[in-house]
Design a protein around this nucleic acid. Structure first.
Length: 154
DNA sequence: TAGGCCATCTGGTCCT
DNA sequence: AGGACCAGATGGCCTA
């Protein structure tokens, strides 16, 4: 059991190493990392500032888009430059557009939370910089395939 | 400085 | 009608 565990560990190291060399050669043939993950730019910290904004209402969350903040209810029209293509045009107000933006930010935030959770599940070297989203997905695919092979051969 | 990555905005489409 | 999902566009940040 312990032997198998060590075997898996060493194989995993090779797996991660191979992944880094094969899938991301541009990142691993460049010598020592400049940043050694001392303060990895965790998405949680990156998004912490605007997480609070998410919890607030749409107006404060959209404070960045000053050009949209108006008093009178202006309207967005869909396909304003190409009326012929849109079958059904939905006219939305500035307030509705801002609310949609807030929902979209929340949706992307939950997506990134899922990516963060996935990052904790895939094996990486401790000193390695934070995986990007595409790297996380590709490594997860390889990792799952590896584990399935392992199950079949034991 | 170019390229990669990411956050955000936006409009289209689908679904309830 | 409105929310969820998606993809394209854009701009900022970081690294080689």
């Amino acid at each position: 059991m312990e032997l198998q565990g060590r075997l898996v560990d060493s194989t995993l190291i090779h797996l991660v190493s191979d992944m880094n060399l094969l899938e991301f050669p541009q990142k691993c043939t460049l010598g020592p990392k400049q940043q050694v993950n001392e303060a990895p730019p965790s998405p949680n910290t990156l998004t912490a500032s605007w997480r609070t904004a998410l919890d607030n209402d749409a107006c404060s969350a959209d404070a960045r888009t000053e050009h949209l903040v108006v008093g009178a209810p202006r309207y967005y029209s869909r396909g304003a430059h190409d009326h012929s293509k849109s079958k059904r045009r939905r006219i939305i107000t500035v307030v509705q557009r801002q609310a949609a933006n807030v929902r979209e930010r929340k949706r992307m935030f939950s997506l990134n939370e899922a990516f963060d959770e996935l990052r904790t599940k895939v094996p990486t070297f401790a000193y390695e910089k934070r995986l990007s989203r595409i790297e996380t997905l590709r490594l997860a695919i390889v990792y799952i395939s590896f584990m399935m092979d392992l199950l079949e051969n034991t």
